[in-house]
């Protein structure tokens, strides 16, 4: 099953490589990973998505917790949560395609953020499957380039991951 693990860790050089190293060392897979400092500059927030059996996920969270720089972590997929990923896509846009892409972008609540005579750059935010669906709608043939941020997530309601 796919899981979203959110980690609060010391904002120190080497901390990220320990997290990433753990995954390759123990044969766990990382599907997406995003990391940036938080409002407290001594802390970074890292979100990663991975998949595996319940036992594997339990091991992953235990092993992550053992890393000295990991302050706290939560498996967001265990409860109600919001997940977002940002995507920028460059699409071939000439002739009738231009209107079609505009329409599709509107449906997905995307924005065209850059335009040339032959290219649209669309910005889209949402859950990963929504981004997948958009790419499927516009079709492989018109896609020139895709950049995705990887998933960020936060729990719904009062729960917070903070010190």
């Amino acid at each position: 099953m796919r899981r979203i693990i959110s980690i609060l860790m010391e904002n120190e050089p080497g901390a990220l490589s320990r997290v990433v190293g753990l995954f390759s060392q123990r044969g766990y897979n990382i599907e997406t990973l995003t990391v940036a400092p938080t409002n407290d500059p001594t802390l970074s927030r890292l979100t990663l998505t991975t998949s595996g059996s319940d036992r594997t996920i339990e091991q992953i969270t235990k092993q992550l917790n053992k890393l000295i720089e990991v302050v706290k972590l939560v498996d967001l997929s265990e409860g109600a949560h919001i997940e977002r990923e940002l995507m920028l896509v460059k699409l071939k846009a000439t002739g009738a395609q231009r209107a079609e892409i505009k329409r599709t972008a509107d449906i997905f609540r995307g924005q065209i953020v850059d335009v040339t005579s032959s290219v649209y750059t669309v910005q889209l935010a949402g859950a990963s499957d929504k981004l997948d669906a958009f790419l499927e709608s516009v079709g492989e043939a018109s896609i020139l380039e895709v950049v995705r941020s990887g998933v960020s997530g936060i729990a719904r309601g009062d729960k917070v991951l903070a010190l």
């Binding site: 036992r55 339990e58 091991q59 235990k62 092993q63 917790n65 053992k66």
Partner: peptide, 8 residues
Amino acid sequence: VDPASIAK
């Protein structure tokens, strides 16, 4: 003493 050892 190591939770990660348990049920590994």
